[in-house]
Amino acid sequence: MRVEAGLTSVLSGWPPPVLDAGGPFAQPVVLLTWALLIGGTIVLIVVLAALAVALWGKPSLRRRLGGDRAIWIGGVAFPGVVLTALLIWGLRLTGDLQATGPRADEMRVRITGEMWWWRVAYLDAAGRTVIRDANELHIPVGKSVLLELASADVIHSFWVPNLAGKMDMIPGRTNLLRIQADRPGTYGGQCAEYCGGPHALMGFAVVAHTPETFARWQAGRRAPPPPEAQRGAELFRTSGCAACHTIAGTEANGLAGPDLSHVGSRRTLGAGILPNNRGTLMGWIADSQTLKPGNRMPGYKQLAPEDLAALAAYMESLK
C-alpha cells in the first residue's frame, strides 16, 4: 500500500555514491577508498596464503613460517611500513578536507537538523538569513559552499555521500562542512546518526544548477509567491496549518515545521522520501503518519477530498 503511495528515495545507491564523487571534497576520498579496498584485499590474500602454507605447504616453506622471525616480519615490520604510509596519506587528506571559516564570496548555508527533517537557511556575507527553505539545498556548480551544521533537538548527521563525508549536528555546537558539485544534478543524502523514531525516513537533496538556472532559482525565491489558489490559502489559515509552518508574506509564521514559502518548487516531500506533485501533496496532508510513522505532523483526514485538492494546489503554487 505504501509503495503505491509513491515512496521513493532521493538517494540512489547505484553507482555507489561513496565511490562516485560529484566534487572536489569527495574525489580524493574515492581514490583513497579504492586504494584501501584493493590494498586490503591484497593483504588478506597474502595472510590467507600464509595460513594455507602453514596448513598444507611444503616442510621447507613451513619451517620458514614457524618462528619468532615470521611474527616480527608479518606482525610488526610489514604493518608498520604500510600503516605509516597510510597514516601520512590520511593525515594530509584530513587537513585538506577539514572545513575552516568562510572564504571570501563563498555561499553560506545554515542547516539545522530537526526531528526528522532539515531546516535550511541561506545566509548573506554578514550571516543574516536571506532565504528560508527545508529539506533541500540549491547550489551553483563549480563553487564551494560552506555549510554551518547545527541541531535543534537531538544529534543528527548530515551526509550527502557524492559531495563530502558526513558531519554530525550536535546541540550546542556548530560544525562546518564544505561541499561542491562539479556537474548539475540532484544528489541524495540521508541522516546518518540515529535520531529516534523515523530516523530511517530523513532524506535530503542537494540540487546543483548551472550558473544561469541558479540565478533564475534565486530570483524566484526572492519574490513573494503569488496567492493564486485563494481557497487553498484560506483553508491553510483556517485549518491550523499556520501554527507550525511559515509562508513568507502571509500571516503564517509557525516555526515547528518546515518553512513552506517555496514548497511548490521542492523536488521531494517528507524529507526526501516522496516525489512532489499534487497527488503526493494531498496524500501527505491527509495522512502523513502512514507515510512516515512517528513524524511530528498530525493527519488531516477530516478534510474533504476537494479541500485537500485546494490545499495541494495552493502548496504547488508556492514556488
Binding site: G80, T84, L87, I88, L91, G95
Partner: peptide, 14 residues
C-alpha cells in the same frame, strides 16, 4: 620506542 615516535607523527604534522 616505535609507538611513541609513531604517535607523535600526526600531532607534529597537524
Amino acid at each position: 620506542l616505535l609507538a611513541v615516535a609513531w604517535q607523535a607523527l600526526p600531532a607534529l604534522m597537524a
